[in-house]
Computed example of a mutant assay.
Amino acid sequence: MGNVKRRHAAVERGVCVACGSCEDVCPRGVVKVMKGSYAAVDISLCIGCGRCEMVCPAGAVTMEVAE
């Protein structure tokens, strides 16, 4: 079947407005707004569902393929 690529969320800190939308929709609770200024993702626990990317009003969240 080959290698299965695992996706995870990534946040561009300079674009993030720390609104908490991504934190609210994460089914695993792995997205947290840090110090009220940007969101951070624990990529080791992220399941790559993409919900955070869909709700981000600033477009700061993207799904990346893990290396």
Rank of each mutant, 00 (worst) to 15 (best):
T62N: 13
A18W: 01
S44N: 14
G29C: 09
V33H: 10
D42M: 00
S21F: 12
G50Q: 04
A40G: 01
C19Q: 11
I47A: 01
D42G: 03
V31N: 14
R6P: 00
E53N: 05
E53I: 01
C26W: 04
G2N: 10
C52W: 01
S44A: 12
C46P: 03
G48T: 09
C52S: 08
C16E: 05
M34H: 06
N3D: 11
E53R: 06
H8F: 06
Y38T: 08
G14C: 01
E53H: 03
I43Y: 01
V41R: 04
M63G: 13
K5Q: 11
V30L: 12
R7V: 11
R7A: 07
P57W: 02
R7S: 10
E67W: 13
P27F: 04
G48W: 05
H8M: 05
C52M: 07
D42Q: 03
K5T: 09
K32E: 15
G59Q: 12
G48A: 10
V31E: 14
T62E: 15
C46Y: 09
L45F: 02
M34C: 09
G2E: 10
R7D: 07
C26D: 14
D42C: 01
V55G: 09
V17K: 04
V4C: 00
V15A: 03
V30G: 10
E12L: 05
A39Y: 01
V41P: 04
V25P: 00
A58Y: 05
M54N: 10
E64W: 01
G14W: 05
G36A: 11
E53F: 00
C49K: 07
Y38M: 06
G50H: 03
R6Y: 10
M1F: 01
E12V: 12
M1D: 07
